[in-house]
Amino acid sequence: MTLIAERVRELTGARQPFVHATVVRAQAPTSAMPGDDAVILADGSIEGFVGGVCAETSVRAAALDTLRDGNTMLLRVLPDGAASFPDAPGAQVVVNPCLSGGAIEIFLRPMLPRPLIGVAGATTPIGAAVVTLAGFLDLEITEPMAYAGASAVVVAGLGRDDEQVIRAALDAGVPLISLVASRTRGAAVLDSLGLTAEERARVRPHAGIDIGARTHQEIALSVLAEIVRELRASSPEPVAAAPTRTAIDPICGMTVVIGEGTPHAVVDGVEHWFCCAGCRDRFVAAS
């Protein structure tokens, strides 16, 4: 396993958002080769190799955009005045005046943590069906009663500690709690908890979309369908990344993302930011 592949596995296991960038095509004399890859974290840091420092500047800016909207991107980085690759609809093209020749196409895939779902009563027939179907839907199941950060909790204990589970999920800030129960029993459970109006609005006392479900698997389908519908309706930003600060390199005219490692210089009390150390040194020498 390559170092980047291992890093991808590690970040995925830690539920950290990142972008996996892979060089698809490259034209000489660029230093990147097809198959080179890297990960870009939410703070803009890059681990791996997808081209030199100037190419990284373009990749960093585009990768942070994909983290915000969750969409994949084919990024085409061209030097100023270079002949382009054959047309590829849907590609985002950036002209990088500082690129030392050649051209690169890089596929950017945002890797966002899977929605986290709690299931109380996972050993009941309905709970077990929810767990199985959740895996098919690429939802991640959290440990029992460890509900912090969960998008939803399914309460399928069928009367076993339902009130305790609901209270724990509410206290953990879970926005959607799906109680598998009849309408009569669900209302009784909620009444016994003495919930506020805000808390009660987060609980579905008779979980699921009405599809005429009869079997355990069909009930699980109806419950998860409701959860998926509400997850999609809320449509939050995939990653609440820190606001991106940018500046124009006064030498080459590139837009650069300002970060901890971005080359910069202070001249006559004014800060200037650069795509690479070479542009910075030229600017300082001419000042």
Results as ranks from 00 to 15, higher is better:
residue 261 G to E: 14
residue 127 G to N: 02
residue 59 V to P: 04
residue 40 I to R: 02
residue 217 Q to S: 13
residue 154 V to P: 02
residue 104 I to L: 15
residue 91 A to C: 06
residue 26 A to V: 02
residue 134 A to Y: 01
residue 166 I to N: 02
residue 2 T to N: 15
residue 109 R to M: 08
residue 219 I to K: 08
residue 240 A to K: 13
residue 41 L to E: 12
residue 236 P to E: 02
residue 2 T to F: 08
residue 24 V to N: 03
residue 173 G to C: 13
residue 211 I to H: 15
residue 15 R to G: 03
residue 9 R to Y: 05
residue 70 G to C: 04
residue 80 D to Y: 06
residue 18 F to K: 06
residue 7 R to S: 09
residue 274 F to I: 05
residue 199 E to I: 09
residue 279 C to G: 10
residue 204 R to C: 09
residue 186 G to M: 11
residue 2 T to I: 04
residue 88 A to G: 01
residue 84 S to Q: 14
residue 32 A to W: 02
residue 24 V to K: 04
residue 250 P to M: 09
residue 202 R to D: 00
residue 279 C to R: 01
residue 217 Q to F: 06
residue 168 A to D: 03
residue 67 L to G: 03
residue 77 V to Y: 00
residue 143 E to D: 13
residue 135 G to V: 07
residue 57 T to Q: 09
residue 165 V to T: 15
residue 135 G to E: 12
residue 37 D to M: 11
residue 140 E to W: 00
residue 6 E to Y: 09
residue 13 G to F: 03
residue 54 C to Q: 08
residue 216 H to M: 10
residue 17 P to W: 06
residue 285 A to W: 00
residue 165 V to N: 04
residue 219 I to L: 13
residue 249 D to K: 04
residue 79 P to K: 04
residue 160 R to Q: 13
residue 34 P to W: 11
residue 81 G to M: 07
residue 153 V to K: 09
residue 156 A to H: 08
residue 122 A to P: 00
residue 123 T to M: 10
residue 182 S to K: 14
residue 225 A to S: 15
residue 21 A to Q: 07
residue 208 G to T: 11
residue 282 R to E: 13
residue 239 V to N: 05
residue 21 A to N: 08
residue 117 I to E: 01
residue 230 E to W: 06
residue 160 R to F: 07
residue 74 L to D: 12
residue 276 C to G: 10
residue 116 L to T: 07
residue 209 I to W: 03
residue 65 D to L: 14
residue 221 L to G: 06
residue 132 T to Q: 14
residue 94 V to M: 09
residue 231 L to N: 10
residue 100 S to L: 10
residue 232 R to S: 05
residue 235 S to W: 13
residue 43 D to T: 12
residue 32 A to C: 09
residue 260 E to S: 13
residue 235 S to L: 10
residue 63 A to K: 03
residue 226 E to R: 11
residue 31 S to R: 08
residue 106 I to E: 04
residue 115 P to T: 01
residue 278 G to V: 00
residue 89 P to W: 04
residue 59 V to S: 03
residue 262 T to C: 08
residue 124 T to G: 15
residue 124 T to L: 12
residue 158 L to E: 13
residue 162 D to S: 07
residue 195 L to F: 07
residue 89 P to K: 12
residue 248 I to Q: 10
residue 27 Q to P: 00
residue 90 G to T: 07
residue 173 G to S: 10
residue 147 Y to T: 01
residue 67 L to P: 02
residue 171 D to N: 12
residue 132 T to L: 10
residue 260 E to P: 01
residue 250 P to S: 06
residue 47 E to K: 03
residue 142 T to C: 15
residue 267 V to H: 10
residue 192 S to V: 01
residue 244 T to E: 09
residue 23 V to N: 00
residue 244 T to A: 03
residue 170 L to Q: 06
residue 270 V to G: 00
residue 216 H to A: 15
residue 287 S to Y: 08
residue 246 T to L: 12
residue 82 A to F: 12
residue 143 E to L: 14
residue 119 V to P: 07
residue 168 A to W: 02
residue 209 I to Q: 12
residue 147 Y to I: 02
residue 283 F to P: 08
residue 123 T to H: 12
residue 142 T to G: 14
residue 237 E to L: 15
residue 265 A to I: 06
residue 257 V to C: 05
residue 25 R to P: 00
